[in-house]
């Protein structure tokens, strides 16, 4: 049962990765790509780490720390990238 849940988490995470990364190749704006990347990189990775956590609960402190780091840094990076790129692009348009 535990194995099943953990495999489901891992597979869902990899599907999120695929779905969120493919828009990188299209010709959309930076912000739109950022939305899909936040699906893949934050949520997909969270689900992968959670799957690993269920698989080997022995080393939970490291994996929980990894999840916390992931959520904090990835969302902050998203905000910083959005902020910097939007103010940079406005200058180019002027």
């Amino acid at each position: 049962m535990m194995d099943f849940i953990s495999y489901t988490c891992l597979i869902v995470g990899v599907i999120f990765w695929f779905w969120g990364t493919i828009p990188l190749l299209s010709e959309r704006s930076v912000l739109f790509k950022l939305h899909s990347l936040s699906v893949s990189d934050t949520l997909g990775s969270m689900s992968i780490i959670f799957g690993l956590l269920l698989k080997i609960p022995r080393e939970w402190p490291l994996l929980v720390l990894a999840i916390v780091c992931l959520v904090l840094w990835n969302t902050m990076l998203g905000y910083v990238l959005a902020y910097c790129s939007s103010s940079g692009e406005k200058r180019e348009n002027r």
Partner: peptide, 13 residues
């Protein structure tokens, strides 16, 4: 952090 965390919305400024 919370607004940016949900995938549909991103705070720009």
């Amino acid at each position: 952090l919370l607004i940016t965390f949900t995938p549909k919305t991103i705070v720009v400024k």
